[in-house]
Nucleic acid binder design. Structure first.
Lengths: 335, 335
DNA sequence: CTGTAATGTGCAATCGTCTGCGTTGGCACA
DNA sequence: TGTGCCAACGCAGACGATTGCACATTACAG
């Protein structure tokens, strides 16, 4: 702007007004300035603008890991809808570490983001950093991996509902002894999906059997361990429902190498509908979670809050999931 | 800072110096200020800092799509190594559109990023926007999908080498009529991988046969079309090498539904080593490209340039790929 | 020919942080 | 008492864009 001003012999204020199309400027001056600006390829310094108005038009996003297809979809939705409303997005990954999560929050806040979208790390079982944000009146929305008690808006899936659907589906296939492979117990989705699993069992008059609930730390090794333990159970279970697809894929791979046939020997189901679920052999029954949609809703609500379009009161948006029945559960026991 | 200054009855400059640990301050004053800053949970405004020093300590990244596992890995590497050196990262996706790519560049430049890491969209066949960056002396590095003529640093895979490896592997399996399924012809990787494919054929004294080079626009429909065309060729080819895994997976799925056996009827290979490649049935032979590593190298070089640790002259870093032989190519023709 | 309004521009302050230079006060020494 | 020096801190300007207010110029009415 300074350079344009010097070249045209006017003040910087005039330049600013011309580019803002202020009505109190001489049309001729305005024309010259706009022309010159284009010629010199002037691009406003967003930093300076943000500093002045104390709004950066930037949102911060924290996800456990970008390489997960589900979170990548969320990010994609967030990006698209943030851009549509003139916002930029800074993305961080916590790598499933609470310390990294805290560090991410610090840098994003320092960067003056106008709001945050957070999906909690696997490790996060203590929430001071979130309450801290809340007390400092920094806008944020939790999605997918949320903490229920914090009075902020949340976007989740009906995880219990999805787990109910898939368990119900397995029960209809005449499976009775159904294993639930859970992730770490304090994860939100571990709990919710267990709820749905148990509810479906209850409806069929099946009592909860603690032996049929397995816990994996979600690493490949632990998934394999669980797969073997299940295979060696006597009597062998009829079906297995894994909390997330990657676990189911690891189980499937291990079973295949052990010579166990799916779905003939045991039925199998996952959750999330990762791209891999469709292409493994046999294709994996799972529950679809529209990640892009989740990102879209989360960011839209956050922006509505920022722009005063939504009420201040936190809301909870619950997305429905869809059962995707595939061959891995096409297994009708005759009893 | 202003609030701290008021509470302690000193000037803002003193606060600034205390927090910068300036030696010309009374230790006692310094102690008090640091204490108070911690108590009030002071966090510096990075916008203001950036404005002052005209460096935002932020990098911009543009990838065709975040949901691709390969690009997600790159981003992950970029993130990790940028953070290690005190930089933040703003990520954009071009959605394979040149217009979106240009728009992304504009906003990132306006946001005063210190440098850019760009992987070109599928559509990008004209490069004014890149030359423009170059002329404005904005630092950027191209990775994976690059344009060769621009005098900036690039990080690529030895795409020709990888294609050579996989084609050679197929030839060793005694396949002779090998189809190459390419993406759009002006894509960098389409060309490079074709080079490697042809080189391997040449070494075996096989002449280039235009009929054996198929072009897909990489959509599911077009991949299916290509799969069918190949299946109906007379005589049927021995093997197919697809430019990227997703194409190979689509071909595989289509062939399976047509009753074609892999690798018995035809061998198949892809490129990239996507997670899906390992779990399809049969597992897909492919070429591994370490995306995380690529991101790491690209960002490290960019930061070295920015910090004056690397010479100004553009360099080209070429990463080697690794053949991942799997069952889909385990096919030894007896002729 | 003067007063007044309308029109078009410039000045200066602001956002939060940083830093060169100047100021203040205290002390030692001549 | 005067001079010089040093430690400790404040002032002011800068980064770039914006905007209320003041100012200058002109036109026009009285």
């Amino acid at each position: 702007m300074k350079e344009i001003a010097k070249k045209l012999g006017v003040s910087v204020s005039t330049i600013s007004r011309a580019l803002k199309d202020s009505p109190e400027l001489h049309p001729e001056t305005k024309r010259k300035i706009v022309e010159m600006a284009k010629e010199m390829n002037y691009q406003p310094n967003l930093l300076a603008q943000s500093l002045r108005i104390s709004r950066s038009k930037t949102l911060g996003v924290i996800v456990p890991e970008i390489t997960s297809h589900f979170f990548a979809s969320c990010i994609s939705g967030i990006q698209d809808y943030a851009n549509k409303r003139g916002y930029n997005v800074m993305i961080c990954q916590s790598n499933e570490s609470i310390e990294q999560e805290k560090a991410n929050i610090r840098t994003l806040v320092s960067s003056q983001v106008d709001g945050l979208l957070i999906s909690l790390s696997r490790e996060t079982n203590q929430f001071d950093h979130l309450y801290d944000l809340y007390n400092r009146e920094i806008n944020f929305v939790l999605f997918d991996r949320v903490q229920e008690d914090i009075p902020v808006s949340k976007v989740t899936f009906n995880d219990a509902g999805g787990a109910y659907q898939v368990t119900h589906h397995l029960l209809e296939g005449n499976n009775r002894r159904i294993v639930y492979v859970s992730g770490p117990e304090d994860m939100y989705i571990s709990k919710k999906r267990k709820e749905g699993y148990l509810k479906a069992l209850a409806e069929y008059g099946i009592e909860k059997d603690p032996l049929l609930i397995k816990i994996s730390d979600l690493t490949l090794e632990d998934n394999v361990r669980v797969a073997r333990e299940i295979a060696e159970m006597v009597p062998r279970p009829d079906a297995v429902f894994c909390m997330i697809d990657p676990v189911a894929v690891d189980v499937l791979t291990e079973w295949k190498s052990m010579g166990i046939k799916i779905p003939e020997d045991m039925a199998l189901a996952g959750f999330t509908n990762n791209p891999t679920a469709a292409v493994v052999e046999p294709p994996l029954t799972t529950v679809a979670q529209p990640g892009y949609e989740m990102g879209k809703l989360a960011v839209t609500h956050l922006l509505d809050q920022l722009d005063g379009l939504a009420s201040e009161d936190p809301i909870s948006i619950v997305l429905e999931t869809t059962l995707v029945p595939r061959k891995s559960s096409r297994h009708f026991q005759e009893k």
